[in-house]
Write a protein that binds this DNA or RNA. Structure first.
Lengths: 332, 332
DNA sequence: AATGGAACTGGGAGCGCTCCCAGGCTGTTT
DNA sequence: AAACAGCCTGGGAGCGCTCCCAGTTCCATT
């Protein structure tokens, strides 16, 4: 049987309340008492029961991380793993724990409800990248603090952490333009994901500024997977591009395969630039030029911001935009 | 304010106890009462407070998933993501939630303690692949049900789910032998990981059966990363192998790069066979022949087995070995 | 009609914690 | 010397649930 507060109190010769004060850093404890109790806690490796604390105080030091439906396929991409890692390591450092939900469609409604009203968590991070996501609405309806990774397209009162997708895309296209490419194609993300949409917009903006006319045959939609990039590129090849901006590194790998199988050289015939800079990108052939987004840090920042929101119970909106960075390798 | 049991009781005109019985499927409730209460619960979307249940009953319907230190680098590999996915989807289906800990070295001791004695979880899955892992000892010392993914080398009383690594390796090497390869090299996992060790043993066994002498220059150690495979292969090339069995697909990608950069062809000059069959392996050039392990299913089986252990509180040991499968593509 | 047992229901106690209030102790002020 | 204002400390109440025990109701038997 694990020890309880009461046990520690008895052993240290003080009351339950005082032990609780020591644990929670209350100032109204004499130094002598505090040290004595802390010593006992340390000696017995005492760990307060978080369920009981949750019940009594309504605070559990646990946050939820929700990755919504439809990402199963994408899960092979290191994006979500890196997010998870960022979130958990920030939480570790702040003495929080993480509850993970991969919301599958069939369980979704029940899942959300459980998340919100189970009393187990103090706040939620939602990696919502979908344009129309019912989770967001339910979330906003509850009063639980929450933050999204990737900003919401219509409801701009929701706190978020995001990267500057548009500027990142612009940097990518500008890099291609500086390399004297003029027939620049793009492979976009699926139409229902915000990040993907912003990246296309950045692409269009850049072309407009240079007075390069849009050409529909130079735009193809992918699904953030390798295979999706491959087929999108096959399609684009018929339009004879001299460069392609791909909205994710995974898709870029597929695109590169398609290009090479067509007997064309990268970057000589077609320059390729990706988006993400996942670890693998330094090791493909040729090494991929790409827009780095600090994925790990996005996760960590989301966790830190959420915990701060929990601590200061004002529902003021937080917005954090992290910068991207052009990483030049050999493919463009 | 969320509703409580008492609220539901008042609304349905029964007692708190009866509502509790309905929720927990107790038989001693008349059908009429049950239906009435269930209707109210449904109408109000009532979700019992799990923290309170945890306190009162010592059961939370939450399990912990612990991925120990040292895997940060490996996290780019889809292995752990797929495990996580398997675990969470099995849990979703059984109405359990998952608490995720990536135990970082500096927090490890405190983390373990929190996991074990927080009262928040009913059991733990540990993806221990390290030979000497202090987590396992602490785990065994507590009476919390737990199961490891990958079997423990010395303590064979611990429940586990694993794949038949040795047989998988044998199938790989036999496939190379059938292709008339005779100078078969291998890139192993890091020496302190069980799975890696078993794969080398399978490799040695096969050679011994064919009376092919061991040649130390044909064995190089990798670290389950792409880069590690690359450097290991560079080393092996000096021994002029005609095939290589690589203990993970990620390392195989690196090895293939090293081979191709040396101007050799795959599989003509050197056949390459991997281990894992992660999604990417169908898309590398040439497509990778490999030993598939059902990673998603490993996670799901671990969760199901653990939940079964929790339900039937006997501490009988469970052992599950899942089969591997040879997937022949173009690289060998 | 009386009895027994099974089926169902209600309420008290208690899980381990936090929060609040009351009270004891100290030291300063009048 | 009395009064008061801090500090500190202890214990009661209660968070929302489960578990147990003590009813109450109902029906089949004798």
């Amino acid at each position: 049987m694990p020890l309880t507060l009461e046990d520690i109190a008895k052993i240290s010769g003080v009351s339950r309340s005082t032990v609780s004060r020591v644990i929670n850093g209350d100032v109204n404890v004499s130094d002598r008492t505090r040290e004595k109790v802390q010593e006992i806690i340390r000696r017995y490796d005492f760990q307060p029961n978080l369920a009981a604390r949750g019940l009594a105080a309504g605070v559990t030091n646990v946050i939820g991380l929700v990755i919504p439906r439809g990402v199963s396929a994408i899960f092979a991409d290191p994006f979500f793993p890196l997010i998870i890692q960022g979130v958990t390591s920030a939480c570790n450092a702040m003495d929080y724990s993480v509850m993970l939900w991969l919301a599958e469609p069939e369980y979704e409604r029940r899942t959300i409800h459980k998340i919100l009203y189970s009393g187990l968590i103090d706040g939620v991070i939602v990696t919502s990248m979908l344009l129309e996501d019912p989770i967001i609405e339910s979330m906003a309806a509850s009063k639980l603090p929450f933050i999204t990774i990737g900003r919401h397209p219509t409801n701009d009162r929701i706190s978020y952490v995001d990267v500057d997708n548009r500027q990142g895309a612009r940097n990518a296209v500008n890099h291609l333009l500086r390399g004297h490419r003029r027939r620049i194609a793009t492979i976009t993300g699926p139409g229902n994901m915000i990040a993907g949409q912003e990246r296309v917009e950045g692409y269009y903006e850049c072309l407009r500024e240079r007075n390069i006319p849009r050409e529909p045959a130079l735009v193809a939609e992918g699904d953030f997977t390798d295979a999706g990039g491959y087929y999108a590129m096959l399609q684009l090849l018929t339009a004879k591009p001299d460069a392609v901006f791909v909205a994710s590194d995974s898709m870029a790998y597929g695109a590169m395969r398609a290009i090479q199988e067509a007997g064309l050289r990268i970057p000589h015939d077609i320059a390729v630039i990706g988006f993400d800079d996942i670890p693998q990108s330094a090791h493909v052939n040729p090494p991929l030029t790409t827009i780095r987004q600090p994925i790990h840090q996005i996760g960590a920042t989301a966790a830190e911001t959420l915990i701060d929101m929990i601590a200061h119970q004002n529902d003021q909106q937080r917005r954090v935009i992290l910068p991207t960075e052009l990483v030049i390798r050999a493919s463009a």
